[in-house]
Write a protein that binds this DNA or RNA. Sequence first.
DNA 1: CACCGATGTTAGTGAATGTTAACATCGGTG
DNA 2: CACCGATGTTAACATTCACTAACATCGGTG
Lengths: 189, 189
Amino acid sequence: MAGQAAGTRRAVILRAAAGLFAARGFHGVSIEDLGRAVGTSGPALYRHFAGKEALLAAILVEISERLAEEGAARAAEEADPAGALDALLRGHIAFALDEPALITVHDRELENVPEPERRRIRRLQRGYVEQWVAVLARLRPDTPEPALRAALHAVFGLLNSTPHSAGELGREEMAGLLFTMARAALLAR
Amino acid sequence: MAGQAAGTRRAVILRAAAGLFAARGFHGVSIEDLGRAVGTSGPALYRHFAGKEALLAAILVEISERLAEEGAARAAEEADPAGALDALLRGHIAFALDEPALITVHDRELENVPEPERRRIRRLQRGYVEQWVAVLARLRPDTPEPALRAALHAVFGLLNSTPHSAGELGREEMAGLLFTMARAALLAR
DNA sequence: CACCGATGTTAGTGAATGTTAACATCGGTG
DNA sequence: CACCGATGTTAACATTCACTAACATCGGTG
């Protein structure tokens, strides 16, 4: 059973694992469950990952990298802070709507990642946050930075709650709603 | 070792359990952990609760009842919808700031509650949501109800994220910030 | 065609965990 | 003071779980 461009199997496993972790939490999913989700049985996964924690770490590192990179790219394309904020918002919203499982795992399971990678993920997350804070500081130079940070975390809470709401709205409608709400929340005083 | 107004022991256990469940998740806490948190060892808890799941169920039922009751009381005191919304916001924010562990458990662990109580909690949560929706519908009669519901869930995400943000702001400052942001998000268009 | 690397399988192992059982303590009550 | 209800203790049990070991399959390559 060879074949598939190298790395494909890994990606399939990571995606399935993210779905299960998002639905039942890291400790609520067994190795056997993870194997079954990709059509094999339990221990087969050790051919691809050192263990259950390594699997979670790989998921979180990938998400954090992606958010930080895309965030930097989007923010850099815009000259004025208002445009940069809109770009950051659109990017984050698209990610949350397209990858609900990844967003869920990303803000719930950091504590279950073992220490070497934990620090790395924290650094990436901090970098992402700093991009937002820099833009917000230019938009609201009068507001002290701790308040900006607190407001930003609250908006992340708003945006990342999408996967848990029933979803009676269509994708585009939801994206527009989240954009309007988040923008209003960040610029309100 | 008798004494203490009946029910006190129960309350102590529930509070400690909520703290642990919030920090490490239902499956990340053992009965032994829960016992140690109240100065006894593991199995002693079976004198007070039928099992680990019953403990979680008790926590969630209590929170849901409290939110629904206080919500109804606060909303009923205000005649106009704008005042009612402000009252609901202030109540929810106070709860989130005063009981971070309870809010966290409340919106993460429903799936681990066994079936008889699960339905009850869902009903209580639905009742709480309906109070908000009724107020919002009067404030924004032009907006279709599904959009109001989606916006409401997003605002809950915003408010309930408080326990997870570092908390560099003082309590009153944070309460004011959350109030301003949530209000702006709900009334934006 | 012999070999190998990638990928899988089943059986087993040791540790952790939820729960029950049997027994202890002790303050209040008749 | 005998008894009981509330509360706790330790030992034991069955189950689950992460992980390892030993062995199988098979496509591509020299």
